[in-house]
Design a protein around this nucleic acid. Sequence first.
DNA 1: AAATCGGGGCA
DNA 2: TGCCCAGATTT
Length: 373
Amino acid sequence: MTDHPPVVLPPETFQRRLLDWFDVHGRHNLPWQQNRTPYRVWVSEIMLQQTQVTTVIPYFERFMERFPDVEALAAANQDEVLHLWTGLGYYARGRNLHKAARVVMEEHDGAFPVHSLEAMASLPGIGRSTAGAIIAQSTGRRAVILDGNVKRVLTRLHAVEGWPGRPAVERRLWSLAERYTPAERVIDFTQAMMDLGATLCRRGRPECGRCPFETECLAHERGEERRFPESKPKKALPTRQTLMLLLLDDSGRVLLEQRPSSGLWGGLWSLPQFEDSEALQAWLDQHAPGAELDDEWSTFTHTFSHFRLEITPQPARVTCLDAVGESRRWFDPTDPANIGLAAPVKGLLESLRPFTLSAPAGHASESAKEPSR
DNA sequence: AAATCGGGGCA
DNA sequence: TGCCCAGATTT
């Protein structure tokens, strides 16, 4: 990865065209664009990390009214800060905001260390991009930003391949952002980059026809705007295996167990599960001596959002079973009780019904749906 | 239902 | 250093 990637148009041209666009179409009247102190810019940046501008505005104004400066914020107790944050969500960032205010008071004499990118970025909740934004927006000194909007603009303009979360890709994007950032009009430039990404160069349905870089944008030239930035590669889901005991009594009913109230399938009814056949056999020896195992059914996969479960049903027959307690019951597949069943168990039990018209083996591609209750 | 987002925390 | 997460929204 080169330190100086080729650029699609000369930085001066890029800057002039972007600023011309911004002067006409950019946002100029946001509350934090008046009286641009580091404090106000900081609070707005943190709020904007997670929420759209229109939602942020009333929160920002209430926040400023109650905490007009860092000192007021640092003196508050956390509960009051979080109270004003209620509805914005992501409370960790509200807590970080409060923490950072105290650091500014105690370690920087109440003044944001806007002279140092490093010092800014070491404050809780402030990373490299937010540090750059605060410095640029509140002092007008040259500083580089790379938030999600800017990343989208740059990956499209240069058709940057690869997921931006990859370090090599991120380095290239920082390098591009660095090269395009001017020394003058930095406040407007950084705002313009964010506005362009937020309004025209949106994730879905970008309005390329109105974009000042329509003729240079490599993604647009290829008709592939929507492919950039590339999305995070989805990791292969981990796979777990389980045996499910399908214990039938002589009238064809199946033994169910209720799951613990929390965790996977919390409170739902399921089949007894075992890691391996030894564990299953040990359970049978204890609870259903004399049970006869039939051949295993074929394994099928149930997919959750975070892992895959390979399920092998193990049928067995028993004539009598003691100890059917609170969390165990017999279930008649021909007359299904109205109880919450784990999704794959529901499918299995349906396949036991004698007059079902659907094929029994419909499990292979099911997803993690909530079973009906 | 899935993708997204900037920073924090951890191996 | 690199990788994944929390936590809520948008598409």
